[in-house]
Amino acid sequence: MRRTSLLLMQGAVAVVIIAFWQIASTTDLIGDPNNISFFFSTPLAVAAQIWMWFATGTIWHHLGITLWESVLAFVIGSVAAVGIGFWFARKPRLAAVFDPYVKAANALPRVVLAPIFTLWFGLGIWSKVALGVTLVFFIVFFNVYQGVKEVNTTILANARMLGMNDRQLLRHVYWPSALSWMFSSLHVSVGFAVVGAVVGEYLGAAGGLGYLIQQAEGVFDVAGVFAGMVVLAAFVLLIDWIVTLAERRLLVWRPEFSKSGR
């Protein structure tokens, strides 16, 4: 009951926005419709464009590229971050030496790296993957680092009293703790993987959703730009939903993810 009424209300928001958009861009209630539709296009034109993409099937190619880049960026960034985060957390001196460099690298706006990556990795997918990795890496790295550092001392003492050696502590205590911190930032890191891919495509590519939007912008095809954004938003929502499913499976032991709690 509550779920359906929530869905209805969420749908109503979209209907209101689209209705307002339609009215503003086709009638002179708000202003000159020619002017407004030039800058904002019209819902029908955008829908027609999306329909075209799916009917002809051209969109799948671009979606596939963006998805593949995002997945690669997420996996490579996460694996590297878990490894290095673990290593640093267990070696405080090493972490102290690298601390200013990690902070400096993280403070750098990633967009400035995009041209360099294009130079290094070419116009193909790898320059976009690299951009995504630089975004994903730091989120996961800081979380894993924190997770290993802040293992509850009583749990640790208990594990040691239960007879665990260093290797077993790593496997049964540090590792699950670090992973749970990593998973708690899953939405953000997956989102950043997509951002890296799309921004990279936008700045120079031969395919992908970012490329599609950039192409439309280049010819002032406002309907194309909006259609690209709508498809991108749907794509991100879908991925976010998959992440939520994964999270519920992986973090059943956490109070906030147990089924009875919802």
Binding site: T154, A157, W253
Partner: peptide, 20 residues
């Protein structure tokens, strides 16, 4: 070092939260 002959029931919760 650690007392290998002892079992310790702690004052605070000390179960591994990620294990059943």
């Amino acid at each position: 070092g650690l007392n290998r002959h002892a079992g310790y029931l702690f004052q605070q919760d000390a179960l591994l939260p990620w294990k059943t």
